[in-house]
Design a protein around this nucleic acid. Structure first.
Lengths: 205, 205
DNA sequence: CCATTGGCTTGTCAAGTGAACAGTTCGCTG
DNA sequence: CAGCGAACTGTTCACTTGACAAGCCAATGG
């Protein structure tokens, strides 16, 4: 009987791509699109730079894969949390949605960093991000949280959306700064819960 | 009588430095520290790259000058606004401080972009920024706005600070994204006032 | 068992990058 | 008005960047 190979080709391919995407997400969030080099990403993934252009044609394609990954995680995380919630009261559902979002922002500050890095310019990456990932999230926000938060005034929806995103994410996105500035480590469980409740109390009291 | 020179040497020097710092602030906010090149900055300022290393020894020094500029503007802007306000009620003063901050964030989104770009890592620029500019602002926030906002619970101060900063700034920092995502142009006077009131109502109702 | 495939490695390239420096201009001072 | 020195310019240097081409070798399938 021939030795079965330790890892099949398909497995290896998938594993490598996964490692690269994860490293890319980390690097892009940390240094921005231009600041992160493909060599740095390759090193974090434990491979070489040439392999990146082999699996992903270009740096842009790799960035899209990284964005797909983090937004996929967000959708899955929020979906699970709200799906298994049998509360009908809209305000209570809105509160729980806000708290779920804050917890996700704490666990994955890369999401916010990516959004800010790209949202400030009008390049193709921003347009792709809005059309592919942000639009669906915003529409869902309008449906679920609009009324309890913005008081059923639709013209306030954009304000409410960006207030929630900014208020819920910033402290985790600049965690090193927060530690040095305030002494509070926002990555602790207690700080995360305190922040989630603080934001929920503000937006859906 | 000898012709007085069109511009004195001191004027020329100051003008040039000013143009470079302004261009640098713009570029750093737009592309991040690593993403912005000194050549790009020189071009925006209408000069050449060599002049930058002449006036500012290094790219780091130029970045500090840019940070000094935007934080100086913030301090001046808030100081003027609150100085000429003869309202004694703490809550009303807090509301006005919040609204003043939101207006500044709208007029100068570079402030928030710089903070996020640097606050996410632990490099020297972040430490310098905290010690030199952020610490004083945070202390003042604790003195003036702490009680009306965080309900006199000092352990909530960091949360309140980052909620205000994030909620008040994000929509302006990612204005191109906001336009495409929601249809709302956050740079209009109406949108700015709406946002200022929205945030003030949340934090100091 | 061997030819082939395809994931991966290595080496190379043109286009930048920040810093440094020699050369040029010109306002100011003596 | 001479000439010093500060403001400015253009170029060079050592290095990094993303992309690509050629070759390597283990898994695959006949």
């Amino acid at each position: 009987m021939a030795n079965a190979p330790a890892t099949t080709r398909a497995q290896q391919r998938a594993d490598t791509r996964e490692r690269i995407v994860e490293a890319a997400l980390e690097a892009f969030a940390e240094k921005g699109f231009r600041g992160a080099s493909t060599r740095d990403i390759a090193q974090r993934a434990g491979t070489n730079q040439g392999l990146i252009t082999y699996h992903f044609r270009s740096k842009d394609d790799l960035w899209q894969a990284a964005a797909d990954r983090i937004f996929g995680m967000l959708q899955k995380s929020l979906g699970e949390r709200l799906g298994s919630l049998d509360v009908r009261d809209p305000r209570e559902r809105a509160r729980e949605a806000i708290r779920a979002y804050v917890r996700f922002a704490a666990a994955h500050p890369e999401l916010f960093r990516l959004m800010v890095d790209e949202g400030k310019n009008s390049e193709d990456r921003m347009k792709w991000l809005v059309d592919t990932h942000l639009k669906p999230r915003f529409d869902e926000f309008a449906r679920a949280g609009g009324s309890p938060i913005s008081g059923s005034n639709p013209s306030l929806l954009p304000h409410a959306y960006y207030v929630m995103a900014g208020a819920g994410s910033l402290i985790f996105a600049v965690a090193p700064e927060c530690r040095r500035l305030t002494g509070l480590d926002p990555t602790t469980e207690a700080a995360i819960e305190a922040h989630a409740n603080f934001v929920a109390d503000l937006l859906a009291p």
